[in-house]
Design a binder for these strands. Sequence first.
DNA 1: TAGATTGTTAATCGATTAACAATC
DNA 2: TAGATTGTTAATCGATTAACAATC
Lengths: 215, 215
Amino acid sequence: MKYRISANVIRRLPRYLRWMRFLERQKVEKISSGDLGERMGLTASQIRQDFNCFGGFGQQGYGYNVSDLRRDIGSILGVDETLSSVVIGVGNLGRALISNFRFSEYGFRVTAAFDVLPELRGAVINGVTVRPASELEDYLRSNDVDVAILTLPQAYANETAELAVRCGVRGIWNFTGIDFDGDLGDTVVEDVHLSDSLLTLGYYLRARQNTKEDI
Amino acid sequence: MKYRISANVIRRLPRYLRWMRFLERQKVEKISSGDLGERMGLTASQIRQDFNCFGGFGQQGYGYNVSDLRRDIGSILGVDETLSSVVIGVGNLGRALISNFRFSEYGFRVTAAFDVLPELRGAVINGVTVRPASELEDYLRSNDVDVAILTLPQAYANETAELAVRCGVRGIWNFTGIDFDGDLGDTVVEDVHLSDSLLTLGYYLRARQNTKEDI
DNA sequence: TAGATTGTTAATCGATTAACAATC
DNA sequence: TAGATTGTTAATCGATTAACAATC
């Protein structure tokens, strides 16, 4: 059991969890690091090292029990203790998350959504009520909200993040595409920079293209 | 000028580009690796190493010209040669991308969207026409489409990806949350695993929580 | 038991950081 | 010119891979 676990390992855990859930659905009962490595495109060594950061889940001579591993990795990631969250900004993206994203599978629950548009007031999307943005501060102060999900226009990103943190929110899932510049203290921020992702895709696409032309 | 550039460097380029665009808007004319590093939370060394993968954009004793750097990084990422793309699946997420995501800033253009719902047929969202899914294959074959943006339900992800590749698409921006299992040849795939992002946020949030409790 | 596969230590590789000569 | 800051080489650090004894 390692003292400090690197971000590289942490960022691979969700992927392991996805694979375990997949393998479980496929009725695969046990799997060796070699077999899993082949499927996931990792070395067996790396998989064993990763798992051993948390104390080792396998059995020598046998491999790993898929269900156990799924449960253990899930529990490291905390999927069975629910954190509460609110969606701020109910445009298409906010709506997409509320309607289609399976928060409960990942240990989250959306307790409310907020938007400035009066016509959205009181709307219920997938069981989540949309409230006026003016009530946000009150709501955050009187409810225990762990995470603010920011799906509003860039212009309001900074002030809203600061408001949320001031009102006790400890984590931000940031879809706005801007980097906060204020002081958010020790708030945990996870940025979803879709543009970074698309630019990377573009780079490799063009790189491939040019390689081909050279041949 | 390095021969092969590591993925770590490539994935930092979009972030550099974002900063250069930001600094340019702030009318910052020049910046040193030290100053930039402080703002971005990187070492000056790393920044200079990164830039020198591409031949060096700076001037000794002066630093880097922000506009030049923005242009050079943009050009490495290819933002000024447009790639064509189609959005497949016009639910909330597809709609969110078509309406709000500034594709042109990243060297992309959305030429069409597709959905199975008959009531969406012919709808125009932000200048993009929604076509019936049944026309997808024909469209891909008769138009030069570089990238398929998959924003449809998981159940159709694999078959649609395979269809797209068969019809000449060379890149996939995958929002479905599933990993393709078929053989997509040398197609460039960029996965947007929102769940990985949220799980990571959850992990660090809970880690912080526990640390606090220990104190 | 013999074979398989883990947990774990050691070796390698690559990425980041430090240092400094080149030069604007 | 003197000061600043790059480009680039060398040193360090960490992550991945290889090896193998432990053990199921």
